[in-house]
Every structure is written in C-alpha cells, then in structure tokens.
Simulated assay, not measured.
Amino acid sequence: MLYHFAITPEVFEPWSINGMIPAGVVLTQLLRGIAEDGLLANLHAGEWMTHVRKHQRAEGISPDVRDRIESCLRTLHDRNRLVRHPRGSDGYAADDFRWLQWALERHRESPFSAIVASDELVELAEVTESFVVPLSRALDDDSWTERTRTPEFEKTESNLRKYVKPLLAHAQKLTLIDPYMNCREDRFLNTVELCANLMGRHDGNVKSGTIQIHAGDPETTGPDAHRESVRDRLARWETSLTPIARHTGHTFRVLLWKRKPGGKHFHDRYLITDQCGIEAPGGLDFLPDDEEERASLTTWAMLDDEVTRNILLNQFHHAKSPYQYLGATRAEP
C-alpha cells in the first residue's frame, strides 16, 4: 500500500525531461503517484535532493514543467514521503553511474518496488535486473500498474506483518484507533506489539517514536468478562505496554473515549502514521497463523491526506472531538 521507489538524479536533468513528449509528463505522473501511495528514496544521506535541486535550476526546463515537478517534490516533503537513506560506498564522487550503484546498494539492503533511471543510463550501465526500469517504460511496468490502495486479505498475524511492515519501516509516529481495542485480549495486544517491533526499523537500525492508541469505554465495550472501570483499564494498559516500550524504545499513550449522550458512535477503525492513513473497517485484531481457518477477510483502504488530518486534528482532539474523553495514560522506555 506504500510503495518505495528510487529515481536516479539524471532523470531530472533538462536533456532527460525534454526527451519525453510532452516534456516531463512521465516524471510528473511518477511523482504524483508516489505522493499518493508511495515513498521516494532520498539517497546518499540526502545528497540526492541537493543534486535534483541543482538540475531543476539548470537552463532548458520550461517554467511550467519545473513548477509541476517542484510542486510534487514539495508534496512528498510535506507528507514525510522523502525517505533519507544512508551514505553510499566509495565516498563523494557522484556521477550518474555512482548514483545507480548507490540505489542498487540500498535495494540489496531493503528492496525498492523499482529503481527508475533514464533510458540512456540503463543502456550504458548494461543493467539487466528487472527492478531497474527505464523512465520511458516506468508507467507501464508491473511495479507501477500493480499498485493497490485497497488490498484484501485474511486477518492473520503474518498478513498483518506483510501489510504494516512497509507502512511502518520509516514511520516515527503511529496512531491505532479501534473502539474495541483492549489489553486483555491477545488478538489486540499482539497487534500493538508487532507494530511496535516494526516501527522505525530499517537499514539495520531502529528509530524510536511515539504510538498513540485510541480505544473505547471499558465499562460498556468488549466482552462482559473484560469490562472494568476507566481507572483500572488505564492501569492495565500501562502495565501491559511498559515492557514493550522498554524493548522497542517507543513511547506509548493510550486515550479512552465514549459516545456523548445523543452523539456520534465511536465506530471507525484506523491505522495512521506520520506518512499515511489506512482505514481498517474489520478492526485491528488479528489471529495467530495456526488459527487461519477462523480468520475473517478484510479490506484496507488508503485515506486521502485531508481525511487523515481531519481524523487526527478533529475527531480525536480534546477540544473538538465528537466523543467524550475519559482519560489517558503513558508507558515510556
């Protein structure tokens, strides 16, 4: 659902952009698509963006094309979709072949959906790997045409791992929203622990972050045997999450909500990071793989950026929420 691409910098040079008819159309469509459901590699410790900016300032690119490309890059930046990768090997000599080498190095560590390079560079470098795609064929490549914003899958832990791993690898903030989520059932707590173990884990390193959980009223939601006071539930959450926080380095915050008298039901379920938002209507509980025959089918859907902001800034904000805030607790490393 969140597809990671690399584009080598020479693609942004005037000769490459103007070589496509109409000028820049393929690159612009690529960037717009990645801004919707992808990540773009900022290679060599962020030097990639420096080179792209230099190419964009060069003479020979029409103002209209330059503005469209700049707009896409700005959107990627604003959505935290430009992913900084470690410095490549062999120092600082950055010619076109070196940039392709650095992209291939990163692919070996953490595979991209595709590496897009100019047709000329692919030919001169004699690259035969199928994941290295010439710009002219990028929009027809399987890595592009087979993207989906609405995967359907059975609710098992292995499928959860499969779909959240690319969502969480470069995230530093995660919000889990499910009125039925609780720490007394493994099918929910295992989801929290799995997400915590995957968040910020890439390139052999782990970056600590924050995880918020929004759940429902423990006095009225969930199995009768698990119902308890808000105070007891928050204490139980803190006890359950503290070992996970210490193991992963992430900080947790749990907030409980209930329906206001005559107000809106707390019903929808979401998984939201600082890069994208996912609607999970079937809930955030998943079964062990050995219970696959009991697992129900679910469909996730990627949310538009504006919808995601509305959920975080309005639906679960103390002063604006349509729900009644009950209390919160924290668990820290």
Rank of each mutant, 00 (worst) to 15 (best):
W237T: 03
T248N: 12
L104C: 10
L2V: 14
K165G: 05
T28L: 07
K320E: 14
C195R: 05
G46C: 01
D186F: 15
L312Q: 09
V192Y: 00
P261W: 12
N314C: 01
H85L: 14
R231I: 06
R147I: 04
L27F: 12
T148F: 09
D268F: 02
I34A: 04
S321G: 02
R149C: 07
N314Q: 08
T75Q: 12
R231F: 10
R233G: 11
G91V: 00
H107M: 03
W48H: 14
E13P: 01
T50W: 03
K54D: 09
V206F: 13
R236S: 14
R32N: 12
Q56Y: 08
L82C: 10
P166G: 08
E152M: 07
T150D: 09
N182E: 07
N190C: 01
Y180R: 03
S208M: 04
H214I: 11
T148W: 15
T308N: 07
S296C: 06
T50Y: 02
P288F: 04
D142V: 13
V116F: 01
D37P: 06
L256P: 01
E120S: 09
A301G: 11
I278Y: 06
E228L: 08
G33F: 07
L139K: 02
T220I: 06
R81M: 06
E193D: 06
H51G: 02
D119S: 05
V127I: 05
G327T: 14
R294A: 14
I115G: 01
R246K: 13
C183M: 03
V206C: 12
I61R: 05
D274V: 04
H85K: 05
F153L: 00
K258S: 10
L104E: 11
A319G: 07
E109T: 03
H214G: 00
I69C: 14
R68C: 04
V65G: 08
G263M: 02
Q275F: 15
G204R: 13
A245I: 13
H247C: 09
W144L: 05
L312D: 10
W144Y: 10
A169L: 06
G60E: 08
D304C: 03
P86A: 11
H226S: 15
Q315Y: 11
P223C: 09
E105H: 00
T191P: 07
D37Q: 08
E10T: 13
T239R: 15
W300K: 03
Y92V: 04
D217I: 06
V164D: 00
A125F: 10
E154D: 08
A138W: 11
D37S: 08
P288C: 10
W102R: 03
R309M: 00
G204A: 01
D274K: 10
H214F: 12
E193C: 05
N197G: 15
W300I: 12
V122C: 09
K173S: 09
L40P: 13
E228C: 09
Y323H: 06
R259E: 11
D203A: 12
L121K: 06
M199L: 15
T221Q: 09
L198P: 05
Y163W: 10
R84N: 15
D290G: 03
R81C: 07
W15V: 07
